[in-house]
Design a protein around this nucleic acid. Structure first.
Length: 738
DNA sequence: TACCCGACTTGTTCTTAGCACA
DNA sequence: TGTGCTAAGAACAAGTCGGGTA
């Protein structure tokens, strides 16, 4: 199936930049349709991608307009209301029209408005004095950083570790809970008892020393505490592209001015006149100082962190100690939205205990808020898995403290995910047959659904929920694809260059999650191609490609095909099955371990390509590459020398020389493998798929079968997260098959 | 049905720990 | 024995999905 992916990896994300690109023009089909997938990453230069942003705004305006221009557009879809679930036939006329009468529906971008919430009213509560002794770990960080204040952690009784020994065995901290050997708990209930210490708050702001000056219009200025803190946020972004972006700067200025004193506000009106360089420099110095600390100082910090982790990083859930994932509350800072995020630059406010909701067991002690403070709320909701939550100030979204992936609660869910994907494996043939049949259904709605599903299955696209235009960057997934995101190459044209069967080629070019560009030309079935032609008829570039489809309808349909089936299951299924197939295909049992690992990584890479997991191709990567190259050269030389020596060696010397030669030869081989691996990995990120899409049992089984130590492919965290899979697979006699 | 939102997963980027090497 | 550099992990942004409400 992977022969169809002609990815053209492009790194739209650069270093977190707003990768908005120009999707029109310059995209003539300049490469053969069958071009090798992984090479050549330049179709469009970075800067080309950078311009244009405006377009989006326009899009919105346009579509509002079209709205009235399109006479069809049923009022709202009220009349569909009682078409209860199931895609039964109880649908009103407008959906049953035959192709001829079909007119595209124009979906409106969502509006939210009611949601400006916190933003405006954000001034109150500037009570930054939350630095209470006795509760705050880190009461203060002397800028000189000399005597690291002993973290006065709340619990005096934390036992002091004998400074020399390193505990750190997973088991020391948490229980090994082999939940997969236990009976499953009934639905809905996530736990029976839950105890924890609440979140760890961000350390209080430490003012800049008087020697560090912020300047406005060239003139030194001592800022009020809060204004200064925000200034440090901006200073931190000085080296970054964000500091050159209009939206970022405007948003920052807007929020910054809110925390200024009236005097400051009066004076500081132009960001361009602000000079943060001294602050930036100071921050860099501080970092250097930290780096330059002695071993002892570093060790001390480490121990302090471990102590914090032991208190705040652990929850007891149904009698088992489990790691918490993110027990530290996000410190205040500036919001760094990705892509052309409209809210980038706004300030994330400091979270106080008064903002935090605690969730814990009824019969366990309630975590104590820091002295002088109280929680926003304490609840005992065992139908959810989070321990603490609060509302983040920029987007107004909920944030949670949850358990670590190694926990039962997460692990069990993960396990279920893969089991669902395996059930899909059993049904996939029938499902494919069904949607292929549906390509030619008389209902537009059904044809769109089938076509979308085809892409989701074949290309592993995401679902593509609707997004609020002014709360997020303009990115899309399958259901939200617009006409402008695809191109149809008409068969005649292709036939000249490539007379083969590749008649029906579709090009995708859009920004997906995290504004990562998805670019792919792919040959599709004739029916699909024809359908697409119909779907885009009489539409504007900014209109929805699948105007009769949305994620909830699609998922509802999928559920009718298989229990628990949703769009994302296809991604999981296709990723895992691809890994299994590729491993089968690529592994040579006679290979060395290093060569086998290369095969593994190649299989993994196929998946990453399928899922479009990219990574920024960095200068550092190129440098590393050069270094490797050099090493190989050096090694070659050594081999040559050893070879010479071997020739001249006699007697006992000879054997020694032979050994040396062999060893060097082996090392050289390893280096070459490393080079290949690295090179092939240039713009592909393997981590995401390994962590989220590949059934770990496939990997464990492969290691077992081929005598590859698991730790060569799974890091410590992987092994913790996938303990269930390791245990299940290794303790079974038969080979795991996904 | 539209819309909103809570909860949870997936994803990239930033930061650090720890390793290979001078 | 320190230095520079990755790879691993932390941080946190951005998705998915399903349920409630008007």
């Amino acid at each position: 199936m992977d022969v169809d992916h002609h990815h053209h990896h492009h790194n739209g994300n650069g270093n977190g930049s707003a990768a908005v690109y120009d999707s029109n023009g310059n995209d003539e089909i300049k490469q053969e349709v069958k071009e090798e997938p992984m090479m050549s990453d330049d179709d469009m230069t970075f800067s080309e991608m950078m311009k244009k942003d405006k377009k989006k705004k326009k899009r919105k305006a346009e579509s509002d307009e079209d709205d009235s221009g399109d006479e069809y557009k049923p009022e709202t879809k009220n009349h569909r209301k009682s078409a209860s679930k199931k895609n039964g036939k109880k649908h009103s006329e407008d959906e049953e029209e035959s192709e001829v009468e079909y007119k595209p529906e124009v979906k409106k971008p969502k509006k939210k408005d009611s949601k400006k919430r916190n933003r405006e009213s954000s001034e109150e509560e500037s009570d930054a004095d939350y630095s209470d002794e006795d509760v705050k770990p880190k009461k203060k960080k002397a800028s000189k950083d000399k005597n690291k204040p002993s973290t006065s952690t709340p619990k005096k009784d934390v036992k002091k570790e004998p400074p020399k020994k390193k505990p750190k065995k997973e088991e020391d901290v948490v229980d090994v809970w082999e939940w997969w050997k236990e009976e499953k708990k009934p639905d809905g209930v996530k736990w029976n008892s839950l105890q924890h210490m609440g979140p760890l708050f961000a350390p209080a702001y430490v003012p800049l020393p008087d020697s560090v000056h912020f300047k406005y219009a060239g003139e030194r200025m001592k800022l009020s505490l809060e204004a200064e803190e925000c200034a440090t946020f901006y200073a931190g972004v000085l080296d970054h592209e964000y500091s050159t972006m209009k939206a970022f700067n405007e948003n920052f200025m807007k929020d910054w001015r809110k925390v200024m004193t009236s005097k400051e506000r009066e004076k500081i009106t132009d960001l361009k006149k602000c000079d943060f360089r001294a602050i930036d420099l100071y921050q860099k110095e501080q970092r250097e100082i930290r780096k330059a600390m002695t071993k002892e100082e570093k060790l001390k910090i480490k121990e302090e962190k471990e102590a914090e982790m032991k208190i705040y990083g652990i929850a007891v859930i149904d009698g088992h100690r489990q790691k918490i994932a993110n027990f530290r509350i996000e410190p205040p800072g500036v919001f760094r939205g990705r892509g052309g995020h409209p809210k980038m630059g706004f300030i994330k406010k400091r979270i106080m205990p008064e903002d935090v909701i605690i969730n814990c067991g009824k019969d366990t002690p309630i975590p104590k808020p820091p002295a002088g403070h109280k929680w926003k709320e304490v609840r005992h909701d065992n139908t959810v898995t989070w321990l603490c939550s609060w509302t983040e100030s920029v987007l107004g979204q909920n944030k949670y403290i949850m358990l670590n992936p190694s926990s039962k609660i997460k692990g069990e869910k993960d396990y279920e995910k893969y089991e669902t994907a395996r059930r899909l494996k059993k049904k996939i043939a029938a499902i494919r047959a069904k949607y292929t049949e549906d390509f030619k259904d008389r209902e537009m709605r059904v044809r769109q659904r089938a076509t979308a599903l085809y892409f989701i299955d074949k290309l592993a696209l995401r679902a593509g929920n609707e997004k609020d235009v002014d709360e997020a960057a303009d990115t899309v997934g399958c259901c939200s694809l617009r006409v402008e995101h695809i191109k149809l190459y008409d068969s005649a044209k292709i036939e000249e260059t490539d007379k083969k069967e590749k008649e029906y080629v579709v090009e995708f070019d859009f920004l997906g999650k995290d504004s990562i560009r998805y670019f792919n030309r792919v040959a599709v079935e004739k029916r699909v191609y024809k359908n697409l032609g119909k779907f885009i008829e009489n539409k504007n570039p900014g209109d929805d490609l699948f105007d009769r489809l949305d994620t909830s309808t699609l998922n509802e349909h999928l559920r009718s095909l298989m229990d628990g089936l949703t769009v994302k299951v296809f991604r999981t299924y296709n990723a895992s099955i691809t890994l299994q197939e590729q491993l089968q295909k690529l592994t040579n049992p006679k290979d060395s371990v290093a060569a086998k690992i290369l095969s593994y990584n190649r299989a993994n890479r196929q998946v990453a390509i399928l899922c479009n997991h990219q990574r920024s191709v960095s200068k550092t990567h190129d440098q590393a590459m050069e270094k490797l190259e050099q090493k190989i050269k050096d090694k070659k030389k050594e081999v040559k020398e050893a070879e010479e020596a071997l020739k001249h060696a006699r007697g006992a010397e000879k054997e020694k020389a032979q050994k040396k030669y062999d060893r060097l030869k082996e090392q050289l081989k390893k280096l070459k493998i490393a080079r290949t691996d690295k090179d092939e990995n240039k713009q592909i990120a393997l981590g995401t798929s390994k962590l989220n899409y590949l059934d770990p049992r496939i990997t464990v089984a492969w290691c077992k079968e081929h005598d590859v130590p698991l730790e060569k492919v799974f890091t410590k965290t992987h092994r913790e997260k996938f303990r269930w899979a390791i245990d299940m697979t290794n303790s079974s006699d038969e080979k795991f098959v996904f």
